[in-house]
């Protein structure tokens, strides 16, 4: 739970590429992914994003695989519902569980697989952003995008304090664990509420101190952020456009040859 993706992003070599280019690649992948209705473009995009993250972004491959598998639990539950209860076509397989009939139909299965492929593609795109772009870089983008100041200030302060409180929470948790605070269900319940409430009170006091500290340093509701200029290089544009064109071609190709 302390494996924050941000830590890996900070040490990634892709960190020093243009933020807008990376955002454009990710946005393109996400939207092409959710609107595509066939597998080839999804596989192609997932592969490209995974390759870029692991090879160009130097993310440890083992960690990347673990990350990809982690959120699939949710995808699994959702896909199972779709497999069993969707579709009206040909029955592929059916059995009964506790007297309750369960049928797998061809179109339900196809839909579930498509949704799974989309989810994997989405995760690959999201990880490309999360593992190569630290939040600090994104704040500069947010500032340039003219979102309301209060929202950006609030997110910057939250970002800062996440790390402080995570540290506090972990040390409390270790202290509780070595005192057998998580020995059984009742104890863990008690320990958890104690941890949560102590954390709340501590963070509140921290917030009061933070206000005094910022006020005495002339905080006027805006923290300036330094944005480095990083021009997009020609090979990057070339590679990105090739990627976009192939994906669009794959999506289009499917539309011509509507097999299913």
């Amino acid at each position: 739970m302390t494996n924050l993706l941000d830590d890996y992003a900070l040490s990634s070599p892709l960190r020093y590429q243009n933020n807008w280019l990376k955002l454009a690649i990710v946005a393109f992948g996400l939207f092409a992914g959710v609107s595509s209705t066939s597998f080839p473009p999804l596989f192609f995009m997932s592969f490209c994003m995974a390759f870029a993250t692991v090879y160009l972004g130097k993310t440890p491959p083992k960690l990347y695989l673990k990350l990809l598998l982690a959120p699939l639990g949710f995808a699994g539950i959702g896909a199972l519902v779709l497999v069993f209860f969707m579709g009206s076509g040909q029955e592929l397989y059916s059995f009964s569980l506790l007297g309750y009939p369960l049928n797998i139909r061809a179109d339900g299965l196809a839909l579930a697989l498509l949704v799974l492929a989309r989810a994997v593609n989405g995760m690959c795109c999201l990880y490309f952003l999360a593992l190569t772009t630290p939040m600090i870089e994104l704040f500069a983008v947010l500032k340039a995008s003219r979102l309301p100041d209060s929202l950006i200030e609030l997110s910057m302060l939250i970002y800062r304090y996440i790390f402080v409180f995570l540290d506090t929470a972990l040390s409390i948790k270790y202290a509780q664990t070595v005192r057998l605070g998580y020995g059984n269900f009742k104890k863990s319940f008690n320990s958890f509420t104690m941890l949560a409430s102590t954390l709340f009170i501590r963070s509140w006091e921290q917030g009061e101190r933070l206000f005094v500290a910022m006020d005495s340093r002339c905080y006027y509701g805006k923290m300036p952020v330094f944005e480095t200029k990083r021009p997009v290089k020609a090979p990057e544009i070339l590679l990105t456009s090739i990627y976009f064109l192939i994906t669009l071609a794959l999506v289009h190709f499917k539309e011509i040859t509507t097999i299913v």
């Binding site: 800062r160 929470a169 709340f200 917030g207 206000f211 910022m214 006020d215």
Partner: peptide
């Protein structure tokens, strides 16, 4: 109330940290 912004920020961070901790379940 100017002092509310830092307080909201720590509350947001608190919610994030709480949600990243695992809660024992029955």
């Amino acid at each position: 109330k100017r002092e509310i912004l830092p307080l909201l920020a720590v509350a947001g961070a608190f919610v994030f940290v709480l949600s990243s901790l695992k809660l024992p379940s029955v």
